[in-house]
Structures are given as C-alpha cells and as structure tokens.
Design a protein around this nucleic acid. Structure first.
Lengths: 275, 275
DNA sequence: GGAGCGCTGTATCGTATATTACGTATTTTG
DNA sequence: CAAAATACGTAATATACGATACAGCGCTCC
C-alpha cells in the first residue's frame, strides 16, 4: 500500500525518463519542501524546465500542480501533528532486505558506544590533540579507508599527521621517525593482518602510543595498544561492517577539533576565517 | 531575540486589531501550514477577507505575501532537516558529550534510509552486479575513502573494478576506457569539487552510467547522474558526517554480493571455498 | 544507416493570485 | 452625543503562475 507521495515516487522512479527522474530526486532529497514551492523554482532547483515538472506530477497521478501541492501539505500536516510517527520507521511493508541491515548497523553503534565511556574518548582526543608529537594512521585491507578518512580531517586542523600507505616496506621505514611522543592509530579487524601486527609491535617497542580500532574479538594488537576501541561488526551480510568504527572515528575527529578550538590553537582560528 | 515568525506573532498579537488577531490565531493554531496556502484560503480559514491577511503580514514586517511565505518555508526546512531537535531527545543517562553526536548520526541514517526505497537500492545493486561493463569509483577530498572502501570490497567479488586515485590528470586519462556499459560511482558532498563535476560531466557525455553519493543539498553532479543517493550529513560538529553514506555503501556492497551469489557466479563460489 | 518514436525545452496563452483603491461600518474621543 | 479616525470588506487591476501547443533533438529499433 502506498501512503505517501515519497513512496509513490520511489516506486515509479525507475520507469521515469531522465528529466523527470531529476525532478524526483531533487524532491526526495529535501522532501517535501521543494514540492511546496512554485513550478518555476522547482524546475530550476532540479535543473529542468517547468513542463517537465508538470509532466512529473502528472505521471504521479495528479490532475494539476495545485492538487499535488495540497496533497503534500496534507501529508506535512499529518506529520507535524504526530511527532512520534516520524521517529518510528514504518516497518517496511515488503519485508525488505535493507531494513535488517540498517537495524543491525544501528544496533552495532548503540552497543559500541555503550561500551565506550566519555572518559576514554576524551583521553584519546586529548592524546590526538597534544601537539608535542606526530600522529600516524594506518589500516588493514578493508579498514585503511577509515584511516584515510580520519587522516584527511586531522591533517587539516593540525600539522604532523601522516597516513601510512603503500607497501609494507614503505611504512616500515617510517618507523625511524616514530618515538615516545608520537601516536599511531591502527585499524584492524578480522581477519587480522600479520603485517599490521608486526608493525604495531615494533612501533610499541619504540615507545609509540597505540590507539587501536578493532572488532569485538580484539585484534592481537590490543596487547600493545594504549587505547582500544572495540566496535561491533556483525550484520546480515557476507561482509563485516565497519560502520560503528566509522562513527567512532567521526566522533573522535569532532572531539579533537573541539579540543583544539578550546586550546585556542592559532591554526584553528585561521581555518575558521577561511571557511 | 526573535528567531521564528511564531515568536514574532505572539510578540505583537497584543497590538493587533480584531481581524488581524483572528488571522494570527488561525496561523498559530496549525503553524505553519496555513501560511503556506494562498491568501484566499488563509482568509477563509481565518474568517476574514484577503486584504486583512495582507495587512497582517505587512504588520509583521514583510513587504509582500510571497516574502512571508518563503520565510516560513525556510523555517520549516530548518526544522525538517534536524529531526533530533524536533523529537525531544530523552536526556541521555550519563549526560555525555558524545551522545548528541551519536544520536544525530543515528537520526541521519534513519532519515537517509527513509528516503531510499528498496527498489532504488536493488536497481543500483543490479547495475553494479551487471558484469558486462566496468565499474569505476572516485570520491572527493573527504569522501574518497568511502570510494576506496567500496572498491576494496567490490574488487574482490568481481573483476573490472577500479578506484580512481591520484591527481586529476591521472583519472581524466582513464575516461578513454569508459563507455556506455560502464558505471561510475562518485562520492561528492559539500563543498562540491569542480574537478569532480567536470569529470562527471565528461563521463556522462561518453554515456557512462553515474551513481552519485551526495548530501541532501545535491551535488551539481546530480544533473548527470542515473542514480542519486542523498544522505543526511548534519551533526553537532565542525565537520559534516559521511556516516550515513557509509552505511548505504555497505548495504550496497552486501546487496551486490548477494546478487552475484544468486547469479551463481563462479568467482563467488571460488571465493567461498577460500573463506 | 535510416525511419520512427519518445523525451525535452521554448514560447505563448489563459487564469488564478496577490495587490490596491475606495466606500462603508465601527469604534473612539472630545 | 457627535464627529473623526480607524478598521474592514468589496471590487477592480496588474502580476505572475500554471498550463499547453509545437518544434527540435536524441535514442532505439529495424
């Protein structure tokens, strides 16, 4: 059963020609506001002409544009009156395949954060924000993108942030640069990579502080790590999910940024003037 | 400080004549929907004449009715984009600083998937699993790790998956290899990168099918894209969050894998024997 | 490679909408 | 109680909005 225009659109979006599909996508992207504007505004927002918009609403089964708009308004009215209905996802009618995936992921995140105290995060953030040493980041086969993501942000708000990429021999050579004041952030989930474990161990012996992102079964690197973040990874898929770790990473990025702002770092002020 | 029209009204409602007061009360009663309708509808709803409505909005300080309406729409847009603010957060038990970040992220995911039908995801998955063409992936400054993450998985279950890295000139040269049967997956969130837009446009002209991961404000690439995934990115942080897009990516990876399993691809069987 | 079809944009038209002018009713004040 | 000022609605007008006809273009299918 189709109850909202949004559903109606996503139901038929596959059968639409290119122009109308653009209209559909722009409407969905910030639903339902674009639909409440005039045809002209809608059309420029979607990058198509006004007749295309009208053909689009006609395809959805409306006689004219005003009828389409008032339907949207009725929907909006119903939403605004019952806040609860919004929070609650209507259980997907067709027993979909994506819903369990999403639910599992959300559960993973809640679980992950439940076992993660503010103090832990604050400690790690403080360590990462402490600019007396360098920060290195590295990840495994599937998690290296997370290391990159974190490095991309941290490198902006502070100097001396390095992502270790390429072949093992390349980053092994970087060990020379690492010492007691430095931090090494490692991402390692099953199946744990020997090369990473060896690398972590050597770094640990040199006095480098290790921050480990791993799964709930804990990479062997946990033995050497100063801080361990254990994320839930189980989802109904052939692959493990790194989403929980990703969110922790984002949270840390935010915390470090705030920390540096609080420290009044000149770099941050300069950064803000650029934004 | 007066931030919303509702406040503005309740501030001045005392000084209004009877007719305009009725207009004000009608608007407040089911705010802000009545204000989005036409002057005529507004007037009948309030039981007054249209000029009274116009005098009412003029008294609020607006030059004309459309200006009043667009202000209301902007307000509504701000509300709808941050579901967290509406839903009345249960005060987190430990009054933590990470909680708002997590809550916002969870909201973003629910909201993102709410606008994403199974059908859409299935279509994209089918396209990605269709092995008659090649798959290219690329991302922007902060989102390229997502492209890498997806590429790392897809490249295992099927051949001809390429992540485009390095300098712009490098991937521009790869355009030669791209044609009608190929798919280009692009990640682009604010601030949208010109280089990516140009690249997408050229690829589109060559007949390449574009799958775009973007934010709710839609990258300009949406004009050329066959499929658009609009993820919510707003979090209480100095940075935008890509977590919702990350989860969509993982969901897609899972869907493609399942699809290929269903197709009985030899590669998958071999893969499973290796696991 | 050619013919047909479908999609899209430009230009135009009719109409509904916001706006303004004006007259009447109602309240207020001396 | 009278007179003036304010408020409100009716009616006319101009604007801008939605709708439509038509032509050009690309695409698909013989």
């Amino acid at each position: 059963m189709i109850s909202s225009i949004a559903e109606l659109i996503s139901d038929r979006i596959g059968t639409m020609p290119a122009g109308e599909r653009r209209a559909a996508q722009t409407l969905i992207a910030n639903y339902p506001l674009t639909g409440l504007k005039t045809v002209a505004e809608f059309s420029t927002a979607a990058g198509v002409s006004s007749p295309t918009i009208l053909r689009f609403v006609a395809r959805l089964g409306f006689q004219n544009y005003p009828e389409f708009q008032s339907t949207l308004q009725d929907e909006l009215a119903a939403q605004l009156q019952s806040p609860a209905s919004r929070t609650f996802n209507p259980p997907s009618p067709n027993g979909s395949a994506v819903s369990p995936m999403l639910e599992a992921t959300l559960d993973n995140m809640r679980e992950t954060f439940r076992h993660l105290s503010d103090k832990q995060l604050a400690d790690i953030a403080a360590k990462l924000a402490d600019r007396r040493g360098k920060t290195f980041l590295i990840g495994g086969r599937f998690t290296d993108p997370l290391a990159r993501y974190m490095a991309a942000h941290l490198a902006i708000i502070q100097p001396n942030v390095f992502h270790l990429a390429g072949q093992e021999s390349v980053w092994r050579d970087r060990l020379i640069d690492m010492g007691k004041r430095d931090v090494l952030v490692i991402f390692d989930i099953r199946r744990y990579q020997d090369s990473l474990v060896r690398f972590a161990e050597t770094a640990h012996q040199r006095g480098v502080q290790l921050v480990l992102f791993t799964d709930q079964w804990l990479s062997p690197i946990a033995r050497f790590a100063r801080h361990v973040i254990a994320g839930r990874t189980a989802v109904p898929s052939a692959w493990d999910s790194s989403a929980a770790l990703f969110v922790v990473a984002e949270t840390l990025i935010g915390a470090v940024t705030r920390q540096l702002e609080a420290d009044g770092a000149k770099r941050i002020r300069e950064l803000e003037s650029l934004r």
